Simulated assay, not measured.
Amino acid sequence: MNSFSTSLKKILFNLLIILSITAFLGFLFLKVYLPFYTHHGETVSIPDLSGYNYREASQLLEKSGLQYEVSIDSGFSTELPALAVLKQIPESNSQVKTGRKVYLTLNARNAPIIKMPNLVNMPLKNVQEILAN
């Protein structure tokens, strides 16, 4: 019985050492390494790029330490010059980490081409309704 209790004490003592080492390593990982690796608390404010030219916007983003990608979709606005920034994701003044990608939607160079329906030999009311749609 005496040898059983001593071996049980040794096992519990070893388990306690293993658990304390595991807890210490977990603490180091969560409180030291992870915040260092993810740059916890270090943020950059995204500038407002709407209306800027593509080159100007890319220079502003590079100065801020941000990456950018131009969206495949483009819009068209007659009020802005060609290749001006129409929309950005994330929005301006958002707090993000350095190196984050900002997605830009640019103004198209040319107006979109719309297919004109065949309106020849149709009553005026039908033509007005088709054009309104």
Rank of each mutant, 00 (worst) to 15 (best):
G99I: 11
P123D: 12
R100M: 08
A108T: 03
P112K: 10
M122T: 01
I113N: 14
K101Q: 02
Y103R: 08
N126T: 12
K125S: 15
Y103M: 12
T105L: 10
V120P: 01
K101G: 03
Y103K: 10
K101S: 03
P112A: 01
I113F: 13
L104P: 05
V127A: 14
L119F: 11
P123K: 13
V127D: 02
T105Y: 05
V127I: 15
P112D: 08
S94M: 05
S92H: 10
V96Q: 02
G99T: 09
P112E: 09
P117Y: 09
K101T: 12
A108K: 13
P117A: 10
K101E: 04
Q95P: 02
R109C: 02
N107D: 06
K97W: 05
I114M: 03
R100D: 04
K115W: 06
N126D: 05
Q95A: 14
I113W: 13
A111T: 11
M116Q: 08
M116N: 07
L104G: 06
T105K: 07
N126K: 15
N93R: 11
N110D: 11
S92I: 04
M116E: 10
A111V: 07
I113A: 13
S94L: 00
L124F: 14
L119G: 01
N93E: 12
V102A: 00
L104T: 08
N110P: 09
R109Q: 05
N121V: 00
A111Y: 08
I114D: 02
V120S: 07
K97L: 05
V96M: 03
M122P: 06
K101I: 03
R100H: 10
A108P: 13
S94K: 04
L106V: 04
M122L: 15
L119Y: 02
L124G: 06
N121D: 04
Q95N: 00
Q128P: 00
A108Y: 10
K101D: 11
Y103E: 09
Y103H: 11
N121I: 03
N118E: 14
Q95R: 02
N118C: 12
M122Y: 06
K97H: 05
R100T: 08
A108M: 08
I114Y: 14
N118T: 07
N107G: 08
P117M: 08
K101V: 15
N126E: 09
V127G: 09
P112I: 06
G99V: 05
L104N: 06
P123G: 07
V127L: 13
M122K: 15
R109L: 07
N110E: 15
I113H: 15
N126Y: 03
N107M: 01
M122V: 05
I113D: 03
I114Q: 13
V96L: 05
K101M: 04
N121R: 12
S92A: 03
V96R: 00
T105W: 02
V96G: 06
G99S: 00
L119V: 00
L119I: 06
M122R: 12
A108L: 12
K125F: 14
N121S: 12
T98V: 08
N118V: 04
P117H: 07
Q128K: 09
S92F: 09
Q95V: 03
T98I: 11
T105A: 14
K115V: 11
P123E: 05
A111W: 11
P123S: 01
N118F: 09
N118M: 13
T98W: 04
V120R: 02
G99W: 01
A108G: 05
I113C: 11
I113Y: 13
Q95E: 14
V102P: 01
R109W: 03
P123N: 10
N110M: 10
L124C: 05
N110T: 08
